[in-house]
Nucleic acid binder design. Sequence first.
DNA 1: CCCACTAGTTTCCATTCTGGAACTATAGCA
DNA 2: TGCTATAGTTCCAGAATGGAAACTAGTGGG
Lengths: 118, 118
Amino acid sequence: METSGPDHATRLIDAPARGCGIERTLQVLDGKWTTLIIRELLPGPKRFGELRTALGTPSAKTLTDRLRILERQNILTRTVHAEVPPRVVYQLTDQGQSLSSVLYAMLSWGEQHPLIED
Amino acid sequence: METSGPDHATRLIDAPARGCGIERTLQVLDGKWTTLIIRELLPGPKRFGELRTALGTPSAKTLTDRLRILERQNILTRTVHAEVPPRVVYQLTDQGQSLSSVLYAMLSWGEQHPLIED
DNA sequence: CCCACTAGTTTCCATTCTGGAACTATAGCA
DNA sequence: TGCTATAGTTCCAGAATGGAAACTAGTGGG
């Protein structure tokens, strides 16, 4: 009896435990950088170098790895402009953009609950 | 769902890149099991053994580690009942329960976007 | 010819995370 | 005394993750 639990609380409780939607989302939002990469791309496309500095300079290898995975998962597209020096632009797909609902929930929660760790 | 960017899209775009609420949420929802642990506890308190089998049997060590971290972060409480054999109950705090907004966003997204990987 | 530039790739290494097996504590019970 | 049960703990091994440094490609400029 929780003082009129909102509808989504019920959905969460009723959802099957394993193989549920949450696990599928976790397969995408995996690793230290993925969520932040998507966050950086929400306002619009960015180049490789822009992403790298915006994120606080993860190693090139790590960033490339993550971007390739997200490309395979159809979260973003990679466009190579045949110039010299090369210009490569990453852009969220519609599916990637739709993750904004999750990111927004994370933003709200994080703002309302400053961590009191250690 | 285009129709003039909803308010939360703007908030996401305007939020500062680093040290934002998203990063704080990621500090809590970290690792392979944490999000699923919280999911299991949303309907109500559970014992150590119940959690373990519900999650698909992670190692005892891993589960204990994660639960201790979540306890330190004030996401859940650990109650030891002095019986034999021992009974230890884990329960979400209000702060932990409030993560349901994030989990619900994950559930919805995951249900709407079955992965097309590999 | 050599250098600079971007966006990588490759190799190697360190750290972190996770799992497995074995071990502990306690009390009731046969 | 030995056995059972739960919830751990400790130690060790392997996997996953991330980072640093060196190297590549192709062209314009000096």
